[in-house]
């Protein structure tokens, strides 16, 4: 068991080193950081949302969108580069099992996304804090109640977004295990992310009563197979306090995310074991 963990760790280490060297990662990180920083100057478009909300929405929107793009494209690239360059041949000829290889890829990619989320959240936190100080001072002068943001909420959001991206990586690896080409994986992976973000429609429909057993069965299957990624989008509630989120609910979301992660990694490992390299 210890040896297995070590091998997985070494694969993930090299995967991480390979990923952070990619220009694509640097490009998306810089682009997202630019979005976070530019949100302050773009607040002239704020139609009274509450300035902090506009800044937060702009920044977290970048994290969500570019994070998803990075998760899909980078994971597929990290997998297929090993297959196409035949480094997978060299590695899998060693006493390294296929699940260990896949898990190593997963943890390496997840670590990179962790860095991505952390850097952006840190930057976002600094921007929000700086603007919050100005708004608090102005509100105190005008005798108004100032709007503030929650650092604890920001930390909770970082964990949730990281977990969401982990689920996306696990799905993309499962698709990669079956797919023959990088392009197919990226297209299907992107569709899977969109399906995950819209899965709440099926979820809401399933919870409403219906007469058709076939329709109900279809909804039941789709709400189980496709993870509901929308449940991780709690930026407003956690960071800006627009709604109260109970601790138990957050833990429940976390567990469901982990469960999907494990399920898709297991599926990917099973498919990859049968793949001919």
């Amino acid at each position: 068991m210890k040896d297995s963990l070590r091998r997985t760790l070494w694969i993930s280490r090299v995967t991480f080193l390979e990923a952070v060297r990619q220009r694509f990662f640097a490009f998306l990180l810089v682009l997202s950081a630019a979005m976070v920083l530019s949100s302050v100057s773009l607040r002239v478009f704020d139609f009274g949302h509450g300035e902090l909300k506009f800044i937060a929405d702009f920044g977290f929107g970048g994290m969500f969108f570019f994070g998803s793009v990075l998760a899909v494209v980078m994971t597929a690239q990290l997998f297929f580069s090993e297959i196409d360059n035949k480094t997978a041949l060299t590695l899998l000829a060693k006493p390294l099992s296929r699940p260990e290889f896949l898990l190593g890829k997963f943890f390496g990619a997840w670590a990179v996304l962790g860095v991505f989320v952390l850097v952006l959240a840190g930057l976002q936190g600094v921007v929000l804090w700086a603007r919050e100080q100005e708004l608090v001072a102005a509100a105190e002068q005008a005798g108004r109640i100032p709007t503030t943001f929650s650092i604890v909420g920001l930390c909770q959001l970082v964990l949730l977004q990281w977990l969401r991206l982990g689920v996306v990586i696990a799905i993309v690896l499962a698709i990669s295990s079956l797919a023959r080409t990088f392009l197919f994986t990226v297209v299907v992976g992107s569709l899977a992310v969109v399906a995950g973000q819209l899965q709440w429609i099926a979820q809401d429909a399933f919870l409403r009563p219906t007469d058709s057993p076939v329709y109900t069965a279809f909804l039941w299957v789709s709400t189980r197979l496709i993870p509901n990624l929308q449940q991780f989008n709690l930026a407003d509630a956690l960071v800006l306090g627009s709604a109260v989120v109970e601790e138990g609910a957050l833990i429940s979301v976390g567990f469901s995310g982990l469960a999907y992660l494990v399920a898709y990694l297991t599926l990917g490992s099973l498919i990859f074991r049968r793949r001919e390299i």
Binding site: A237, G248, A249, A259
Partner: peptide, 20 residues
């Protein structure tokens, strides 16, 4: 695993839904 994850997700969605 998928069924279990889906069931967990359904209950967590019911609790999270009002926040979005």
């Amino acid at each position: 695993l998928l069924l279990g994850a889906g069931t967990l997700a359904e209950s967590s969605w019911l609790r999270i839904r009002p926040s979005i």
